[in-house]
Amino acid sequence: MAESLKDRVREKLLRQIAEDGGHPSERGEGNDPRLVALDDDLAALDEALDDDPVIEHLAAKYWVP
């Protein structure tokens, strides 16, 4: 069975966070704004239902086919 779009977006976000040298929950002063944005997008994805348009938005934003 193929992964859902939501699963593929989550995988892409986690990979990007790892490549950028951070963890999704690392917050503190001086954090990289890109890591914070990735963390926020991951949180929004985790709260989204399977048919939520935010999934399509994030897929387009992060080029997930």
Rank of each mutant, 00 (worst) to 15 (best):
K6R: 09
P65D: 15
A44C: 07
D32P: 07
P24A: 14
D52Y: 12
L58G: 09
R34P: 08
A2I: 00
A60M: 10
Y62L: 13
E47M: 01
Y62K: 13
P53C: 00
D7I: 02
E26M: 10
Q16E: 09
D20M: 14
R8C: 01
R27M: 04
A59H: 10
A44T: 09
V54G: 08
K12V: 15
E47C: 06
A59C: 15
E29M: 11
D39S: 12
A48D: 15
G22M: 03
R27E: 09
A48M: 15
K6E: 06
A37R: 08
K12R: 15
A2H: 07
D51Y: 13
A44E: 09
V64W: 07
D46L: 12
G28F: 00
K6F: 01
H57S: 15
D20P: 14
D40E: 04
A2D: 09
R34N: 11
E19R: 05
D51L: 07
A48W: 14
E56M: 05
L13K: 09
E29Y: 02
A43Y: 14
A44M: 08
Q16S: 07
L14N: 13
R15L: 07
P65F: 15
G22D: 13
E19M: 06
V36Q: 11
L14V: 12
A18F: 00
R34G: 09
I55T: 04
A44D: 01
K12W: 14
A43N: 13
D7V: 08
K61G: 12
L49C: 00
D20Q: 15
R34S: 10
V36E: 07
A48F: 14
R8N: 00
Y62S: 11
A2Q: 06
K6L: 04
L13W: 02
D32K: 01
L45V: 09
L58Q: 12
V9M: 04
R15A: 03
I55D: 02
H57E: 14
E26G: 03
E56I: 01
V54N: 03
D41P: 06
E56D: 15
W63R: 07
V54A: 02
I55C: 08
A60E: 09
K61Q: 13
M1A: 00
Q16P: 04
A43T: 12
D40K: 02
R10P: 08
P65G: 15
L35A: 07
E47N: 10
G21P: 02
V36L: 14
N31A: 11
K6G: 10
S4V: 06
D7Y: 01
V9K: 03
V9H: 03
E3D: 01
D52A: 12
R15Y: 05
A48N: 15
A60H: 03
P53S: 02
L49K: 06
L58K: 11
L13N: 05
Y62A: 08
H57T: 14
P53H: 03
E3K: 06
V64M: 01
D41N: 09
L13C: 09
E47Y: 04
H57W: 15
K12T: 15
E3Q: 04
I17A: 06
P24M: 11
L14P: 12
H23F: 15
I17Q: 07
E26F: 03
